[in-house]
Nucleic acid binder design. Sequence first.
DNA 1: TAAGTGAGAGCGAACATTCGCTCACGGTGG
DNA 2: CCACCGTGAGCGAATGTTCGCTCTCACTTA
Lengths: 234, 234
Amino acid sequence: MEETAYFEATQAEPLEGSGLTRAERRDQQVQRILEAAKNCFVRSGFQGASMQQICLECGMSPGALYRYFPSKEAIVEAICEADRQDDMSCFGELKHTDSAVEGLVEAAMAHILHTHEKGSAPLFAEMRSESMRNETIRCTIEGHKQQVAEMILPVLQGAIDRGEINPPADIRTLMAVVMSVGEGMAINDLPSRGVPIDQLEAVIRAMVVGMLRPTGGDADGNIQSTPGSFSSFG
Amino acid sequence: MEETAYFEATQAEPLEGSGLTRAERRDQQVQRILEAAKNCFVRSGFQGASMQQICLECGMSPGALYRYFPSKEAIVEAICEADRQDDMSCFGELKHTDSAVEGLVEAAMAHILHTHEKGSAPLFAEMRSESMRNETIRCTIEGHKQQVAEMILPVLQGAIDRGEINPPADIRTLMAVVMSVGEGMAINDLPSRGVPIDQLEAVIRAMVVGMLRPTGGDADGNIQSTPGSFSSFG
DNA sequence: TAAGTGAGAGCGAACATTCGCTCACGGTGG
DNA sequence: CCACCGTGAGCGAATGTTCGCTCTCACTTA
């Protein structure tokens, strides 16, 4: 039906027929609706926001809006899909890392900062609770989680196989905890609460080190050496 | 029969057990409404659940229900308040521990298991997203967090002062991360996803050890003290 | 003890809104 | 000319809440 093509050209210039294809203009309108709906959903929640509010926010009549989306639910789904796809971009560089600890730390920090900058924590919280009762959104979220897990897992498994890390539990449990922890910190948007980034990173690194237990030679893992002799053998 | 559903549930039964004061009966009715509303809210969300659904669930007419709560919002607030108060019970024993690591691990496990058994993760997710736009609920949640923080903080601060632990960041950041991590794991309800409890505890302990850096412990996370721990190995 | 009383409990139809959504119709670019 | 874009009044259903009513029961009074 509708494609949620994700163009960087979010500069939805007001409706001028200035040299735009019909398809281009259509995409532009879709984007306009999505952005307006996102604002409304953040403000009032999926169920609390009304179509009238969305119409008002994007300057369209109901009839016009319903030419682009068949229902309110479709808008919600499109927004969730786009948000999760955007969120995934943080984990792209995970493949190129050779240290499991640093890879996880970087991914966590990227995720936290990305969520903070985009201000998408409220929307994610909304998605999270909506997923408890909406099948489609649950699938969207679960699919996203699955994809993220499939990026993290080989990194950890590889490190285990090479003997670089020695986690205290099987990898399935480890993954579950890692994902939950990441979600908890992203949704809480710690930077907005005045938590300094470098301090945050230090705690996260310590946490990751504790969970993964890098064996002896973690060269690049610049763990702040403590005066109190923090032993790190496996 | 079907049409007089309200009458059947309400007036017939309590008449028998009339060893009740008016005030006692009133409390009983309030509880009945709260439980019914909780079910509805878990099923459909705060905004999605209608007063009619709640009325049906607790076997009362709208008129009767509105004698106990002035508005739907008041019911939501009462439920959030009760849920958070119940949630707090997990952290009561934190004072009696002498090991910061074991205290945190026990508190985390207690919280996770409590949330799992009560099945309150969906309600908490709902509260979490509602708190983004509802002032009263935000205060309820923040107040709860504050109280939990005030139980954890002195344990950590004491351990730092005594030189038992050496965290990689200041205690404010540490607290923020600990709270976020705890929330992330409670809300994800890992036991219900098949994560074994002992494995989960092992990872959490390793995580806590990593964050707190006990000066006397070894890298396996086995702390010598605290025989009262309900865990075996890590 | 018997009759009376008033406040509270409960019912459920009805209230004014608001909801998501539709449709007949005017406009416009290709 | 046709195919699309956009309008906005309006649909039926559902929303949270109210109100006039009946009934019950702990209480007073005779």
